[in-house]
Each structure stands twice: as C-alpha cells, then as structure tokens.
Simulated assay, not measured.
Amino acid sequence: MAPQFLNNQDDFGSGPSRDYVGYGEHPPEFSWPGGASVAMNIVVNYEEGSEYSLPMGDGRNDMLGEVNRPLDPSIRDLAMESMYEYGSRVGVWREMGIFAEAGINCTFFACAVAIERNPEVGRRLIEEGHEICSHGYRWVEHYAMTRDEERESIRLAVESFEKTCGERPVGWYCRYGPSVHTRELVVEEGGFLYDGDSYNDELPYYVDVGGTSHLVVPYALDLNDVRFVMPQGYSSGEDFFSDGKAAVDRLRHEAERSGVARMLSVGTHPRLIGRPARADALARLIDYAQGTGDVWFARRDEIARFWLSEFPSG
C-alpha cells in the first residue's frame, strides 16, 4: 500500500491544530535589544498556598515537594504543606535578593490565590520591576474544567491580581498544559498580549485564534528546578549550573553562526531553588550569563512586546 502523505497539520475538529514545521530551517534573522544573541527569561513559579490541599477543600494533597509520597487523601499532609510554606516564607525572598543583586528582572508565573495569601510578595515584585504572568486563579488543571469554569477562573485571576498587585497580567500560563479552550478564552478575555502554553519552539510565533492573530511565547521544562525532586533529575546545584551554562554556550554559538538570536527559559520554584545550595547555583548561572556580555535578561512581556514591534503579524 502506498504511503499516505499528509500536510504539516492535523485538525482534530476541537481546539488548535498541530504544526510540525514552524520556522524550520529559516527562522528570522535578528538580534535582541542591545545586540544580544540570547534572551534569557527566568521564571519564578509562585504557587505556594494555591496548591491542592485538604484545608482548601480539595479532597487531595499536592505532591510536588522535596519528598513525594502518596498519602491517604483523607489525611492532611502537614509535611508537604510546610514545604510549600517554605517557598513563600523564605525561598521567594532569597530569589528576589539574587535578582536585585544582579540587577535583573524576571517573570513570575503567579497563582492569584498565592499572592492573596502573601500580598507583600505581589507588592514587592511589582516595585522591583518583575512581571506578573497569570498562572491561574489556583494551581489546578485547566484541562479538567468545563469551558465556563475555565472562563470564570481566568476572570477571577485577573480581578485578583488587579487588587493585590495594582495591575493586571498580560501573559497567561496554565498548570501542566492548557485545555482545548484555553487559548480561545485568553484571546476572548481581551487583555493578554501572549500565552506561554506551548513547548514546541524557542522563539515567539503567531497562531490564528478564531480570526485573531495571537502571540505565543513558548516555555521549556528542561532547565527547570523541578528536576531536583524528580528521579531523572539533578543531584546537586552543580548539575543545574552546568546545564544552564551549556545551554547559554550552545545558543550563543548557534546565534553567531546563523545570525538568528535565541531564547532560553529557566524555570524555578521558590520552595525548590530557594534552598541555599540550589540558590547559589542560580546566582552563579546568572553571573556567568552576564559575563558573556551577550545575554539580555528579559521579562516575557518584554520579549512579547519586542516581537510584536519587530515582527508584527500579517
């Protein structure tokens, strides 16, 4: 039987189609502001207090902490709760201290309820020039919601951030991936410049959402401190630093060879990277990247605005 050749997209009739090609061999040639060849975006996933827990009425405990163990969902996991509390009590302040010392700004993938529980974090991140990107009203799976539930969750998140931080987010990023409705609802809401609900590229790109051109600033999970608590992950801060240094070196080399600037996402969580030895690795990675003289430390909204200006859709 002769092979069946398909085009580059699959259309499943519900939600976005798949694109296997993207920029391919010919991404646009450009440099970031200041002539930088790499835009490094450090993300702080600030979720503490919005995660699944019995006190929140969820009937389950979250498990992404230092020790992941299945506990009877009818029993409060006080150890896990305290691991999350470390992030808001200690870790986030250590991270912000590192950023202030380095003179850089980052993006906070923040859950609205987490900021409600510790509003000083919201005030300080805005005062210090960081970006607040909505990570949802709570740290929950949007793909498990109905369309109406998801619309309401997005509305609640925006409204909450406006109250706690004095400004609304212009970026959106779900926990563990979006639903088939998320991008449509983000565009429908009307105030978002971009979403980060994709892992398929290393440069921003546009998608058509119901006739509207919408910008995606993709994220990545490889250089992410969650690997400190995963079986296949980092055994020490040195692993995190080494991975980050190699990524910076490779992207700078590719940019020099091709004339195409690159983007690097670094994912952190205060309850994980906020521990002293790991935080030291983050500080050393920032110092190394700054020492190249070729890396632009950028918020995701800055990357989005640059792309919208330099490469307008249509």
Rank of each mutant, 00 (worst) to 15 (best):
Q4L: 14
L6R: 13
L6E: 13
D11F: 13
Y20L: 14
G22Q: 10
P27N: 04
E29S: 12
G34D: 09
G34T: 04
E47I: 11
E47G: 05
E48G: 06
E51T: 02
D58F: 08
G59I: 01
N61M: 06
V67H: 12
V67A: 05
N68C: 07
M83L: 09
M96K: 09
E101H: 02
V113E: 11
I126S: 05
E128K: 12
E131D: 03
E131W: 12
H135G: 07
A144F: 13
M145K: 14
S153L: 02
R155G: 10
E167F: 07
E167N: 03
R168S: 13
V170S: 03
G171H: 04
H181C: 03
H181V: 06
V186N: 06
D195E: 04
S198T: 05
G210S: 00
G210F: 08
H214A: 07
P218G: 00
L223F: 10
L223Q: 08
N224P: 05
N224A: 02
V226W: 08
F228Q: 02
M230V: 01
S235A: 07
S236V: 04
K245F: 10
L251H: 06
S258P: 05
G259Y: 03
V260D: 02
R262N: 07
V266Y: 08
T268A: 00
T268L: 09
L272C: 13
L272I: 13
G274C: 11
L285D: 00
I286L: 00
G291R: 11
G293T: 02
D294M: 04
R299F: 08
D301I: 05
W307H: 06
W307D: 00
L308F: 01
S309P: 05
F311W: 05
